[in-house]
């Protein structure tokens, strides 16, 4: 386990050192961004719509019973932008994109494509890992912005239509404007960027270190997803704690 962790750290450092080449690899980054968006945007929106709705459904009646229905918009919005959207989108991307990255690189390793790159004096970190990590690092925060907006909308629809809640659109969104700071949204974006780097590095590392045939690829995919999820949940607490002092800031 420690060897794995050390290798991942080394890969992370190698990607950091390769960052000045990112403009040169822009075509591959764009291809990866297209793939990530294609594979996950619709799913992210659907997921967020229902998460926002469920959040409103769970908390709305309790708040309304206590005469706090006007605070529902802010509660749903804060819960989404600071916690649920970054974590849920990271989970989605780890499962959908991280697994695909590990499988693709794992197959390339098994079929000697990565060895072939090395013999052509092409660094696999520059050619394969950098575009993937950069693309996922750009895509996940963007998905979180979408997830926030759609999730807030999901919460508003449930708040309006559910008889036990019945909070108006203006009341719901007005409360979001009063409650949510820009720093709250930024907090979630910082988290999502860190999660993205973790997913990218962990998945690429598992792919690059695949051993054996198709069974090895399967093992790498499983490890990529499980390790990403464990690290996301651990880092979520650490990042929440670290970002607490930056909570006050620019208001919408």
């Amino acid at each position: 386990m420690f060897q794995n962790f050390g290798e991942m750290l080394l890969l992370f450092v190698a990607v950091g050192r390769a960052l000045p080449r990112v403009w040169r690899e822009r075509r591959k980054v764009a291809e990866q961004l297209f793939d990530i968006g294609n594979a996950s945007l619709f799913m992210a929106c659907t997921l967020s719509l229902f998460i926002g709705g469920v959040l409103a459904l769970q908390t709305g009646p309790v708040l309304v019973e206590r005469g706090l229905g006007s605070a529902l918009g802010g509660l749903v919005a804060l819960g989404l932008c600071k916690e649920l959207a970054p974590v849920m989108m990271a989970v989605l991307i780890a499962g959908r994109i991280g697994s695909a990255m590990a499988a693709e690189l794992g197959s390339m390793r098994v079929y000697q494509e990565i060895d072939a790159l090395r013999t052509l004096n092409i660094n696999p970190v520059h050619y394969l890992v950098l575009p993937r990590v950069v693309a996922i690092g750009l895509a996940l925060p963007c998905l979180v912005v979408f997830a926030n907006l759609v999730g807030w909308l999901g919460g508003a629809i449930v708040s309006l239509l559910n008889d036990r809640i019945a909070v108006s659109w203006s009341g719901y969104f007005g409360n979001i404007r009063e409650t949510v700071d820009f720093s709250d949204v930024a907090n979630g974006l910082v988290k999502s960027f860190v999660f993205a780097v973790v997913i990218g590095v962990v998945s690429c590392h598992q792919g690059l270190t695949t051993l054996g045939g198709p069974r090895g690829v399967g093992r790498s995919v499983t490890k990529a997803v499980v390790n990403s999820l464990v690290l996301i949940l651990l880092l979520d607490y650490v990042l929440t704690r670290v970002l607490l002092p930056f909570d006050k800031g620019w208001r919408f």
Partner: peptide
Amino acid sequence: LGERYRLAMVFQSGGLLN
């Protein structure tokens, strides 16, 4: 070394990028 000498390898599977 790969920058000073031009080396190449043809793999058993070809090693082509699919």
